[in-house]
C-alpha cells in the first residue's frame, strides 16, 4: 500500500481510556497498519504533528494547552474526530463546571486539605485551566463523533474501516453507546 492514510491521535482532558480501547482492537491492528501510518500519537515517539488525513482526539478541553493542541490538530488534519464521552460533552472532567474555578483552586491549593504550600501554582510553564470544561465541537469544527466511555474496540474498528473504505461511518445500535 503506497497511499497510506496518515493518522494522528491525542489525549486532552481524558483518561487514556479511549486509547486503551483503541489498542483493544488487538490483532486487527496488523490489518490497520497496512492502511495507515501513524503520525504524532502517544503510541509513537513523533512529537511534532505533520499534515494528516485523520486526527482522533480523546478528552475535552480543560486548559489552554488543550485548546492549542486541538487547534493544531484542526489545522493539520483533514478529518477530525471527537472520540469518547469527554471529547463529546466534556465527560467526567466537566462535572466540575457548576463550581466556580476560584472555589476549586482555593479548595485544592489553599484549603485545609491543600496539597501545595498555600500557593496556587503560577509557573508560566503550566497551562492555565479554563473556567469550564468544554467539548471539542464548541471550539473547532468536528467532522465525526465516536461516542462511548470509552467507545468499544469494535466501535472504533468499525468506524475506522468504514472511513478507510470511503464510506460515511454509521454505528449500528449494538455499537452506539454513551457509557
Amino acid at each position: 500500500m503506497d497511499n497510506k492514510l496518515k493518522v494522528a491521535t491525542a489525549t486532552l482532558a481524558g483518561c487514556f481510556g479511549c486509547h486503551m480501547s483503541f489498542l483493544d482492537i488487538d490483532e486487527r491492528f496488523f490489518e490497520l497498519v497496512k492502511h495507515v501510518e501513524f503520525d504524532r500519537t502517544p503510541l509513537t515517539d513523533i512529537k511534532v504533528l505533520g499534515e494528516c488525513d485523520l486526527g482522533l482526539i480523546e478528552g475535552g478541553l480543560c486548559n489552554s494547552e488543550n485548546v492549542e493542541v486541538l487547534r493544531q490538530f484542526r489545522r493539520q488534519c483533514r478529518i477530525l474526530v471527537s472520540v469518547g464521552a469527554c471529547a463529546i460533552n466534556g465527560g467526567l472532567p466537566a462535572q466540575r463546571n457548576p463550581i466556580p474555578l476560584s472555589v476549586i483552586l482555593d479548595e485544592i491549593y489553599l484549603g485545609e486539605a491543600g496539597i501545595a504550600h498555600g500557593l496556587i501554582p503560577n509557573d508560566p510553564e503550566l497551562p492555565l485551566p479554563l473556567d469550564k470544561v468544554h467539548p471539542l465541537h464548541e471550539v473547532v469544527k468536528i467532522d465525526y463523533f465516536l461516542p462511548g466511555c470509552p467507545p468499544s474496540a469494535d466501535a472504533i474498528w468499525t468506524f475506522l474501516t468504514e472511513l478507510l473504505a470511503g464510506r460515511e461511518p454509521v454505528l449500528g445500535t449494538e455499537l452506539l453507546h454513551y457509557d
Binding site: I88, A94, P98, P147, L171, T173, L176, H177
Partner: peptide
C-alpha cells in the same frame, strides 16, 4: 437518542448549575 442515531449533542452546552 440511540434510536435516532445521535452521536453527539451538536449544540453548545448550557452546563446549568442544579444542586
Amino acid at each position: 437518542a440511540y434510536h435516532l442515531g445521535m452521536t453527539n449533542a451538536h449544540y453548545d452546552h448550557f452546563f446549568p448549575n442544579r444542586p
